[in-house]
Design a protein around this nucleic acid. Sequence first.
DNA 1: TGTACATCAGTGAACGCGCGTTCACTGATGTAC
DNA 2: TGTACATCAGTGAACGCGCGTTCACTGATGTAC
Lengths: 195, 195
Amino acid sequence: VSSYHHGDLRRAVLDAALDVIATDGPAALSLRDLARRAGVSHTAPAHHFGDKAGLLTAVAVEGSDLLGETLADGPLELRELGVRYVRFALAHPAHFAVMYRPDLLRPDDPALVAARARTSALLRGALTTDRRDGNAPPGADTTSDPHGDADLAATAAWSLAHGFATLWRAGALTPALAGRDPEEVFRSLAGVLPA
Amino acid sequence: VSSYHHGDLRRAVLDAALDVIATDGPAALSLRDLARRAGVSHTAPAHHFGDKAGLLTAVAVEGSDLLGETLADGPLELRELGVRYVRFALAHPAHFAVMYRPDLLRPDDPALVAARARTSALLRGALTTDRRDGNAPPGADTTSDPHGDADLAATAAWSLAHGFATLWRAGALTPALAGRDPEEVFRSLAGVLPA
DNA sequence: TGTACATCAGTGAACGCGCGTTCACTGATGTAC
DNA sequence: TGTACATCAGTGAACGCGCGTTCACTGATGTAC
């Protein structure tokens, strides 16, 4: 193994970044520190990511794909999707912490736009299929439904799951629910949603 | 007016901080910059807040009280509380951005603990009254209900409002809902909640 | 199969910058008598 | 009502630090012929 070329510096820097973000948040990131952790000179990371926003954009791309995988792999009623969303957020806290921070990354980056489009197309397709199978909320137009009941229900489910995961991670919920399994708690919580 | 003493440097620094946070997020804060904005030497703010965590703790205290005021002033069904929570988050984005970031402030600070206790007592009291008035979710024990249906419903409402406000602020929702009034959107969204 | 060369990944010294913190200080305010 | 003094708010020079960025470079890899 040559010691001059790292082998997979890109991956190594990403992993170091995920580690730092999960522990101290995205604000604590420094390219020099990541280089140090990867055992490489401090200018090397710039070669792969340009700057900090580039690195965080790469994290968001990866997060979007991971989220897509997590959501796609299983049954697709709205409630179960929420459970999976919560699972993703707690299993990949660093990705989750970065994905919805347009101030920290480049929201218009082509790779990021593409990744988001992949996940959302996948999700839209799945939900449409599910509705056709008879799981539509009462009164929903199952063919095309812009801004209609089904879209509202999806937005509600997303908000519920996102809010729950965020509050849980912040420790805002735990006093009352300490020690319980977050997915299980969310599942009962999501009883408020239309099936 | 003497030019040596500022008059209300504490308020001036807080306002400058809120301005910076609303624009660039809490990570962009620097005590030196805030001192500059307040027209004061760069060591002066330390006198009032100690350090950055102290400043952000003060912001969170103020935010907690503002939230309490916003929630307390009006009718108290769960759905309307959600609407008011969203209103608070969008009207005071800087406070909202800081309040649930235990990594950035001192969660155990006595003033913060007290402020949170105030708001949550106020809210708990109000909800209990409301339930006694006959607005309890079906099956709820209206007298004492730890971890029961009513607590679950409250957590669901909180998660829904928190998630919606967060996603809205991140611009994640706006493609589909651009230009619409967020409170109005949330009100229809909250139709999924038990009354 | 071997050689030449372009490309790419990583180096390390140097720079300038803004930051937080310390320190001895000074100006204003308020309270005791 | 006036004076003395303690307390508090703000000053400004100095420091050391980690950061991102630039630059000329060197080592390894892969492709053309």
